[in-house]
Design a binder for these strands. Structure first.
Length: 422
RNA sequence: GGAGACGUCGCAUAGUCCGGCCGAGUGCACCACCCUGCUAAGGUGGAGUCCCCUCACGGGGACCGCGGGUUCAAAUCCCGCCGUCUCCGCCA
């Protein structure tokens, strides 16, 4: 939810933001109109209600014999109040509907346009070169006994898989490395629920354009989360949090579920695009004025992971049209995948400013003692997909895979993963 | 899954049977001031959240788990939902 007062005072800000996103600009004016009729309706209702309240006190104090007359009189007033209340409720709902469809105000500097209009901020690390025929991650994964797609499909259908042996260990190692770094940076680890109520799912903004990506359990009316961001955003909903001692930083460890609807035929091979995976996600509550700086810190932690894993990557500033409705700015870190000759997203970090917190009602107390919505940010610290880049980047001619030093402590000191039948 | 009890202002509670004087009492905690010179004392006052009107001072409305209903009027009566606790059953 955007700030209604800011909408009223500076509608141009929102017109520009919507335009950059390629979203509806006219909805801004519709929302403005709804805002003024809403306020008029509320005032009308409240005036009547005040009258009714005063009258009620009169009735209560009146002697018995006069009550009947007064009550009869009050009946008409009651009808008017009810009518005015209904009108107020309706126009409030209409305003919320329209204002709710306005996407988050983008941060200054976010590139305009759609998916292909991102700006590359930097490319880091040399792209690996091979003097032997390169194998893709699935081929290597099968050689190592790390990835079993066939059995995943047998048990659960397409886009499901088993990680086995070194594959399973590699994922746990990646997640553990991420967790240790998060702990060092002062994050509080959380293992989060992966089924959430509709209002939490809606509050994070995932039921907007991403609705068809989300698994829904009809019987219980619960949603399976595609990231622990959802649970962590809901963690402090309806609370006034304390930011006196700095931001609240959480690291959520969870399995993630995505329908991947509309991606038929895309990334059908291997574990690049799957229905279920694990992820360690950073989530931060901070003061709005500190959000952009914090965003850079999250990005820094992400890059630290990729760099130390010896991956070649680039950082992109996602274009406005490719942002989720909650994000004001998003950086993706994409790793080079040799067999695809392309960079593929391994992490994503979004600054949601106060958009999510306003919806979920998470506030903090400022210096003036007033409550204000907090800013929220999120970013990936490790996830199953990283195995793809790791296997391909560090593969060797004999099908073995070099293990980066930072992972070795989590793999019993293992330096090289060898093919199972070698 | 079955039976029962419950859900009030940060915490703990009163009020609900008999609707209006209850936006709501008390204790603790909290903040300011006073008193006191001494390690957990006493006194006075103030504290909630959200929204609307107003440049402001201030005024008004809503909120007693959530949503409906009855009524001139609901924390209080009725219905639905959610949650918590206790007992029984079941259990990867």
């Amino acid at each position: 939810m955007i700030d209604p007062v800011l909408l009223r005072d500076q509608p141009d800000l929102f017109r520009r933001s919507q335009k950059a996103r390629g979203a509806s600009v006219s909805v801004v004016d519709d929302a403005l109109a709804a805002d003024s009729s809403r306020r008029a309706a509320i005032s009308a209702y409240e005036e009547l209600r005040a009258e009714q309240n005063a009258f009620g006190k009169l009735v209560a104090k009146a002697p018995k014999e006069e009550k009947a007359v007064l009550v009869a009189e009050a009946k008409g007033l009651a009808d008017k109040v009810k009518e005015a209340q209904q009108l107020a409720n309706e126009s409030e709902a209409e305003f919320v509907r329209l204002a709710g469809s306005i996407q988050n105000l983008i941060v200054d500097g976010v590139p305009e346009g759609g998916e292909d209009d991102f700006v590359t901020l930097r490319e880091v690390g040399a792209k690996p070169e091979f003097d032997f025929p390169v194998r893709d991650h699935l081929e290597i994964g099968e050689l190592l006994g790390a990835i079993d797609m066939a059995r995943g499909t047998k048990v659960s259908g397409s886009r499901f898989y088993f990680l086995s042996g070194i594959g399973a260990r590699l994922e746990i190692a990646l997640m553990s490395l991420g967790l240790d770094r998060a702990l060092n940076a002062g994050f509080t680890p959380l293992i989060t629920p992966t089924l959430v109520r509709p209002e939490i799912m809606a509050g994070t903004g995932f039921l907007g354009s991403h609705a068809d990506e989300v698994y829904h359990l009809e019987d219980e009316d619960l949603y399976l989360t595609g990231t622990s961001e959802v649970a962590m955003a809901g963690y402090h909903s309806d609370e006034i949090i304390d930011l006196e001692k700095g931001p609240l930083r959480y690291a959520g460890w969870s399995t993630c579920y995505r329908k991947e609807a509309g991606s038929y035929g895309k990334d059908t091979r291997g574990i690049i695009r799957v229905h279920q995976f694990n992820k360690l996600e950073m989530f931060v509550y901070t003061r709005p004025e500190d959000a952009e700086e914090e965003h850079q810190r999250l990005l820094g932690w992400q890059e630290g992971m990729l760099r130390d894993l010896g991956l070649s990557y680039r950082v992109i500033d996602t274009a406005a049209g490719d942002l989720g409705s909650s994000a004001a700015r998003k950086f993706d870190v994409e790793a080079w995948v040799p067999t695809q000759g392309a960079y593929r997203e391994l992490t994503s970090t979004s600054n949601c400013t106060t958009y999510q917190a306003r919806r979920l009602s998470t506030r903090f107390r400022g210096e003036d003692g007033k409550t204000t919505p907090a800013a929220t940010l999120n970013g990936t610290l490790a996830t199953t997909r990283w195995i793809v880049a790791l296997l391909e980047t560090h593969q060797r001619a004999d099908g073995s895979v070099f293990i980066p030093e930072v992972l070795r402590p989590y793999l019993g000191g293992l330096e090289v993963a060898l093919p199972v039948n070698a």
